[in-house]
């Protein structure tokens, strides 16, 4: 017979972790309801994360945001720090989502990456930028593509 406080503790934990909590957007709002009410972007980010884990990456940080930029995922691949941009599209006819990472976005990524490396004292590690591109045509499961070293750490 479990003590009453044990039942409370278990109940609190099941409430906390029942919904996939706020790991994705970084907003403080509550996500009511089930996974299906998540936005397409959030689902894509989760999919990308799981894919990278299957590829052997260790996820270190989600949604790293600073004033000058933001990074969707920071991960570790062996000894390398990888800054991952997740690009999701519903329709493949506009070209691969990789092309959507334009110069301005690259700059923002670079700035955020420098901030991250400095903040977590990783300046001596090698790093690179990857892009995970997710294409979701309604008719089939999403295509996932990983482009490693999609661009070089810029000169900002």
């Amino acid at each position: 017979m479990r003590a009453w406080w044990q039942r409370f503790v278990t109940a609190v934990q099941s409430v906390m972790f029942r919904l996939r909590r706020r790991g994705t957007q970084g907003s403080a709002g509550r996500h009511a309801g089930s996974v299906s009410s998540q936005s397409f972007g959030q689902q894509s980010e989760q999919l990308a994360e799981r894919y990278l884990q299957r590829r052997g990456y260790t996820i270190m940080h989600r949604n790293y945001r600073v004033t000058q930029g933001e990074i969707d995922l920071v991960a570790q691949d062996g000894d390398t720090v990888v800054f991952v941009e997740v690009k999701a599209r519903r329709n493949s006819s506009f070209g691969s989502p990789v092309l959507a990472v334009d110069a301005r976005k690259q700059q923002r990524l670079t700035k955020a990456a420098r901030h991250y490396l400095h903040r977590f004292h990783l300046g001596n590690r090698s790093c690179r930028f990857d892009v995970v591109s997710i294409t979701q045509d309604a008719s089939h499961d999403p295509n996932i593509e990983l482009i490693q070293n999609a661009f070089e750490l810029g000169e900002s």
Binding site: A28, T67, R119
Partner: peptide, 12 residues
Amino acid sequence: EMTFPRLDTPTQ
């Protein structure tokens, strides 16, 4: 201050 040095929440 760590993750959100500015507290505005960007939207998707």
